[in-house]
Structures are given as C-alpha cells and as structure tokens.
Amino acid sequence: MKSDALKSPEEIYEYLKASFDELLEYVPAELGQSWITVPPFSMKAVAKFLRDDPALRFNTLMCQSGVHYPDEDELGVTYHLHSTSHKHTLVLKVRVPIADPRVQSVEAIWKTADWHEREAWDLLGIVFDGHPNLKRILCPEGWEGHPLRKDYRQQETYLGVTTGA
C-alpha cells in the first residue's frame, strides 16, 4: 500500500517502544501487512496514545474484527487503524484465552468501535471491559452460543420455530 511508505509498522513499533516498553511485540508478516501485538489489559492506553500522539494521529478505526483460533484455544481481535492526516495505516492484534476472553474496550477512543465490539461479542463471545452497552446486536436477545466460533452448534429451535430444514 502506498501509505506504508510514509511510516512502516516497524518504525511505528520503534516509536511506541519508548512509551510502552516491553508490552508490545512486533510480528513481521510475509503476506500482507505486519502487525503489533498488544496485551488485552493495556489496549485502551495504547489506543489513546495512537490517537492523540502528534506523530501518529490514528484518527479512524477502519475495521475491528474478532477471530477464533481453535488450535491455540484463543480468541483474537484485529484492529485496522488509519490516519487521514498522516496517511499511514497500522494493524494491531490482541489475543485472549477462550476461557477468559476479556479485552479493554476502545469505544471511548473511537466511537465506531461501539457496534464493532457488540458484533464481536455477539458472534464470538469476546467480552469488552468498559463497553457501555455490550448486548447482542445481530442475533436476537436470548440466542444460544456464539455462531462464528468454529465449534458452534446451531440451536434446534428458536421461539418454537425450527432453525433446520
């Protein structure tokens, strides 16, 4: 991508190291964009820094996606950030164990995360600490399970109507 030339993820990582020290990890990718791994309990502080630092100014969260990694028994969240003023992009990743899937919410930093986080909770069961209204968004209230998990089993009936053929 063109915007990478302005500031590569590696440079941003070096820049962030000064403030966050050991917390972050840089993962180079062979295909697609390289990313930075953030621990779930410091996501909000990192997000705030990324948005407000004059050298970074990541003012939009393009996309926030939940992922289930069944081999590692983990859930993950991927953040795609973009800065309209500096024209660079960045990918952040958070990994949490499936037994205790808690990530700090970034709803207060980027408003768009509100619905994205609700969707990740609905479809994958990731809990976002600090989200003001973490309810199901696509499936109805009272739906069983989180459909996008790889081991999801469809419930047989909903309100007395069969979900199968």
């Binding site: 696509l138 499936c139 459909p147 999801y152 469809q154 419930q155 109507v161 069969t162 979900t163 199968g164 053929a165």
Partner: peptide, 15 residues
Amino acid sequence: YWEHGYHVLKGVDKV
C-alpha cells in the same frame, strides 16, 4: 442460506 444459515428460516411456510 439453506445449509449454513443458522439464523435463516428455511422457508416462510413454516410460520
């Protein structure tokens, strides 16, 4: 959406 649509009603004639 017949096969994998967990949230899709398989035919409106069910209701």
